[in-house]
């Protein structure tokens, strides 16, 4: 389909120049008609080909590990699968958009603090990640949920909701103490290894049991 409005005889690359004369016109016509079938071939191939639609509510996409969505609490195996928020307020203080509110209390008969409320207004969160960086116990992570929706502005997520059936306080206290002791022991071992003649460096495994790798479950 030539649209050579300049009427010049110079062939434009990628464009078919309309030939002159009767024979040329007929050939042009035939060629133009053949292009119709080229188009039809493309669509027919597509018609038979693979479909890319995901039937969203019925089949949900798996998000990549790098996907960042609303923050969630990390569950730790050595704490019987509960979080380790000590309600230090660091995340609340550093949050540039003031969307985190953490309340905490001491566990009974202990100095250990524990979050009782972890509220996030995700509508103002900019996913900057400062709270993750500042968290001393590394109990914050990005979740991979992508289809959260609320009915009004200022919809508050309670991050503690999934931890409603945590272990009872004495049990938890025992777990936390046990972990602290394990940590202290590890640190002592590391120091001992360092002070000893550096003939052979301490094995890697001994220096790192402080925080096991976070489990990849959603908040």
């Amino acid at each position: 389909m030539s649209q050579d409005s300049t009427n010049s005889a110079v062939p434009v690359p990628g464009r078919s120049v309309r030939p002159t004369g009767f024979g040329g016109a007929v050939r042009f016509m035939v060629r133009s008609m053949l292009t119709l079938f080229v188009g039809l071939k493309v669509t027919l191939k597509k018609l038979m080909g693979r479909k890319v639609t995901e039937q969203y509510p019925h089949e949900k996409p798996v998000m990549s590990g790098a996907f960042r969505s609303a923050i969630a609490l990390v569950s730790f195996d050595d704490l019987n699968g509960t979080h380790d928020c000590i309600a230090c307020d660091a995340c609340e203080l550093i949050c540039p958009s003031y969307c985190i509110t953490v309340r905490g209390d001491r566990l009974p008969d202990s100095k250990k603090k524990r979050a009782t409320e972890f509220l996030v207004d995700f509508s103002t969160c900019s996913l900057c990640g400062l709270c993750l960086a500042v968290c001393p116990t590394e109990t914050l992570k990005y979740s991979s949920g992508y289809d959260d929706a609320g009915y009004n502005r200022g919809w508050i997520h309670n991050l503690l909701e999934p931890y409603a059936d945590d272990p009872e306080a004495p049990e938890l206290l025992a777990l936390l103490t046990a972990r602290d002791e394990a940590k202290r022991a590890a640190r002592k071992a590391a120091r001992a290894a360092k002070e000893a003649p550096a003939a052979k460096p301490a094995p890697e495994a001994e220096t790192t049991p402080a925080n096991p790798a976070p489990e990849g479950s959603d908040g």
């Binding site: 649209q3 409005s5 300049t6 133009s32």
Partner: peptide, 11 residues
């Protein structure tokens, strides 16, 4: 009228 009649062609 001065509309260009050449060069504007369809089909």
């Amino acid at each position: 009228d001065d509309l260009p009649t050449e060069g504007v062609e369809g089909v």
